[in-house]
Simulated assay, not measured.
Amino acid sequence: MLGNLNNRQIEHVLHSLIIGRIGCHTDNKTYIVPITYAYDGKYIYGHTNEGMKIDMMRKNPMVCFEADVVDNMSNWRSVIAWGKFEELKTPEQRIEGMKIITDKVMPLMTGETTMSHSMTDSGQESIEALQGVVYRIKLTEKTGRFEKM
């Protein structure tokens, strides 16, 4: 059976995952790239280095975001959302963005090597926030589909 996800199901998918894809478009080029993210019910938060994705989103902040759960070819859920990129520039914004990301992602990192890199104090979050680009995407429209056999 194919169907549409309701708002509660869409929110569940977005809150439960940490890997999604951003689609951005500028200068007659479309670019889709996977990201690690955290969702707070309003924004998708991300952290990255300078590169094509950031260059494109700075030129055209209107983006598409996709996240999916695929159990198999006949059992899956997919959410597509549209929104606006916003770079977090002040130290306070950057630290708060990194806190949201690390609070979501770090508990899911269970390997021996990843645990040694976990944040043990807010000072480490401050250091991480000073490196790279911290950003968020305000979601303005969301839709979802599923298949279940």
Rank of each mutant, 00 (worst) to 15 (best):
K99M: 12
M115T: 13
D121S: 15
L108R: 15
P61W: 03
P61S: 04
M73V: 11
G97E: 10
E128C: 12
M98V: 14
H117N: 12
N49G: 15
I100A: 11
V63A: 03
S78T: 01
V33K: 05
K29N: 14
P107C: 04
D68H: 08
P107H: 06
T36G: 03
T90D: 05
E66W: 08
R77V: 05
G41P: 07
K99E: 13
I80H: 02
E112Q: 12
A81F: 00
M119F: 10
T26S: 15
I22W: 02
T90H: 11
E125G: 11
L108Q: 14
T90P: 03
V134R: 02
C64M: 09
K29L: 14
H117M: 15
P34M: 12
N72H: 05
E86W: 07
S122A: 12
W82I: 04
I80N: 03
T30E: 13
D40P: 05
I32Q: 08
I35D: 09
Y135N: 04
W76S: 04
K29I: 15
E128Q: 12
N72A: 00
H25T: 10
S118M: 13
T48W: 04
T102Y: 14
T114K: 11
H117E: 11
V70K: 08
G23E: 04
G132K: 07
D68Q: 08
P34R: 12
V105F: 02
M115A: 08
F85T: 05
I35Y: 00
Y45H: 10
N28I: 09
V70F: 08
S122N: 14
R136F: 01
Y31Q: 03
I101R: 02
M98R: 08
R58N: 09
Y37G: 04
P107I: 00
G97H: 10
G97V: 07
M106I: 09
T90Y: 03
V69L: 08
T30R: 07
E96G: 00
K138I: 08
T120A: 07
N28K: 14
M52K: 15
A81V: 01
M52N: 12
K84N: 01
V69C: 07
M119L: 12
T110P: 04
M52H: 14
T120V: 11
K104Y: 03
R58G: 01
M73L: 10
K138W: 03
E86N: 04
V63N: 06
D68C: 07
I54A: 04
G132A: 03
V79Y: 02
T36A: 13
V134S: 15
R58K: 14
I54P: 00
E96F: 10
D121R: 09
I22G: 06
P61F: 04
D55H: 13
L88F: 01
Y135T: 06
Y45R: 06
V134T: 15
A81M: 00
T48Y: 04
C24N: 02
F85S: 00
A81E: 02
K53D: 08
Y39M: 05
V63Y: 05
M73S: 12
H25P: 00
E86A: 06
I44V: 06
K104V: 06
C64Y: 03
Q124D: 09
Q131L: 13
E50N: 14
G111D: 14
G132E: 04
V134K: 05
F85M: 00
T90K: 06
V70L: 12
G23Y: 00
